[in-house]
Design a protein around this nucleic acid. Structure first.
Length: 466
RNA sequence: GUCCCCAUCGUCUAGUGGCCUAGGACGCUGGCCUCUCACGCCGGAAACAGGGGUUCGACUCCCCUUGGGGACGCCA
């Protein structure tokens, strides 16, 4: 059997982190089994669906490196087919028309709740004579679900899940205005799209059981279900928009790499022994649903950042350089000069092991831009008091005399000066660092001198000499 | 409230009856390295929710309790 999965978000907002993980699992599962992932936009709620959200979802998926087969399918566009199935169910006696008004249903639920009974629809039109139908009301079509026995879904992640049919009411298939409900639409679409595995959040677990009833009544084979646990916020509560359920683009803005987010999301709820660093090729080779955990996982930013720093350190230098240049230009709000651009590759190795995100990388690389006089951080300014200016003057003299500006020569020059002044290296390095970077922490001082070049170094030192 | 699902360090997890004195990773923390900050290296604290069974033997199997989560719409 060929594997066909699908990612089916509703376009009511950006691609949030939970959706991204669902998409990743669908994508990995399909890739692992040599199948394909389809994309279906569940846009039947016309009031809440927007084109902007559809675009955001596409972009989010692409940014994450997840692709899908063929054109995205609009669920809304398939309304006629959904109605066709509902009518077939009706014709076969597996569905019926219900003339209850919303007000009547609300009253029914209210009464039931007040009496401590279940608020499920009581099936009052199930066996009622259609002749009693009011002429002024349009009916909804409800599924004539089995009332005895039980329905079981053999979930690949959760195991067998059984619900007594008496616990489920007759769900609405077609609304009074003739449009399909989500329950009907999903089943029809998954069937028509030949989806073999439905992998989605476990908030749909009970829906799966109800959907199973539609499959059964239509005489269709149900797909294999796999309901993956939801992601929770750091406090253990459901991840909501108020609480950190950011769109993937928010992570991009935080300077998170797609490769890191993929690795992080993969390990959230799935594992392969003690493996932590798993790149995408390895993930495709290893991924399967049997290793997906059953409990909800909390979203943990420090872990994501740790993974991100790993991917920053190991990614292709040229690509990282491009990303850094873009980030720097964005922060500075201008294009970088040739001179500045030329410093980037020199400093990259030293910088990248000090940054957890691209944003942090650009921040630490800020001193590479020509912006004299340099902004001084408070702690850096503190390093430039007392003897520092005089010391910098002597350093300026020594450095002016350097003819071959390379790390080796610079190391020797500075060490010799410290020795001559009878100072520990740190006493000389710190004022220099402050003058050169405006900070009290940076890559090694000899490297910093080298990255900046002789002229820029002398100018910056001169700004703080006695 | 009813139904469904879940339960190992703070967090993500390994563990499928004896390999567990419960392993790894992030985070936290002590030290080394050192011109600062990082990186790296060495070390530490830190968990089987509770109670009953089953068994020669339970983190692993069963039951109950507790705790979490989810679903109960003419939303998706």
């Amino acid at each position: 059997m060929s594997v066909i999965t699908r990612f089916a978000p509703s376009p009511t907002g950006f691609l949030h982190i939970g959706g991204a993980r669902t998409a990743l699992f669908n994508w990995l599962f399909a890739k692992h089994h040599g199948g394909e992932m389809l994309l279906r936009i569940e846009d039947t709620d016309r009031a809440r669906s927007t084109d902007a959200a559809v675009t955001a979802i596409h972009e989010g998926l692409l940014w994450l490196g997840l692709d899908w087969q063929g054109d995205p399918i609009s669920q809304f566009a398939r309304a006629d087919r959904h109605a066709e199935v509902a009518n077939q169910l009706l014709a076969d006696g597996n569905a019926y028309k219900c003339y209850c008004t919303p007000a009547e249903l609300a009253e029914m639920r209210e009464t039931a709740r007040a009496e401590g009974r279940s608020t499920r629809y009581d099936g009052r039109w199930r066996d009622r004579d259609p002749a009693e139908a009011p002429s002024d009301a349009l009916p909804v079509i409800r599924l004539k679900a089995p009332q005895s026995g039980a329905t079981t879904v053999n979930d690949l992640v959760q195991g067998p899940v059984t619900v007594q049919n008496s616990e489920m009411d007759d769900m609405v298939l077609l609304r009074a205005d003739g449009t399909p409900t989500y329950m009907l639409a999903v089943v029809v679409d998954d069937h028509d799209m030949a989806v073999s595995h439905v992998i989605r959040g476990d908030d749909h677990l009970t829906n799966a059981v109800r959907q199973r009833q539609i499959y059964d009544l239509m005489g269709w084979d149900a797909p294999i279900f796999a309901h993956i646990p939801l992601i929770h916020g750091a406090d253990g509560a459901k991840l909501s928009k108020r609480h950190g359920a950011l769109g993937v683009e928010a992570y991009a803005e935080m300077g998170i790499l797609p490769s890191a987010l993929r690795n992080y999301l993969l390990r959230l709820g799935w594992s392969h022994g003690d493996e932590e660093i798993i790149d995408t090729d390895q993930a495709i080779a290893w991924f399967d649903l049997d290793a997906v955990g059953k409990s909800a996982a909390r979203f943990d930013i420090p872990r994501l950042e740790s993974l991100n720093s790993h991917y920053i350190r190991t990614m292709d230098a040229g690509e990282l350089c491009t990303l850094l240049a873009a980030q720097l230009a964005q922060v500075a709000n201008r294009d970088l000069t040739e001179t500045e651009l030329a410093r980037l590759p020199l400093a990259l190795d030293a910088l990248k092991e000090r940054a957890k995100t691209l944003v942090e990388l650009a921040d630490k690389a800020g001193f590479l831009l020509d912006t004299r006089p340099l902004a001084m951080e408070e702690k850096a300014a503190g390093l430039l008091t007392g003897d520092a200016p005089a010391l910098l003057s002597r350093a300026h003299g020594v450095l002016s005399a350097v003819e071959d500006w390379n790390v080796e020569v610079l190391t020797e020059a500075i060490r010799n000066l410290a020795e001559a002044e009878d100072l520990k290296l740190g006493k000389l390095a710190q004022p220099l660092r402050a003058a050169l970077t405006g900070r009290n922490a940076s890559p090694g001082i000899f490297d910093v001198l080298f990255f900046l070049g002789q002229k820029e170094c002398l100018d910056r030192i001169a700004d703080h000499m006695a």
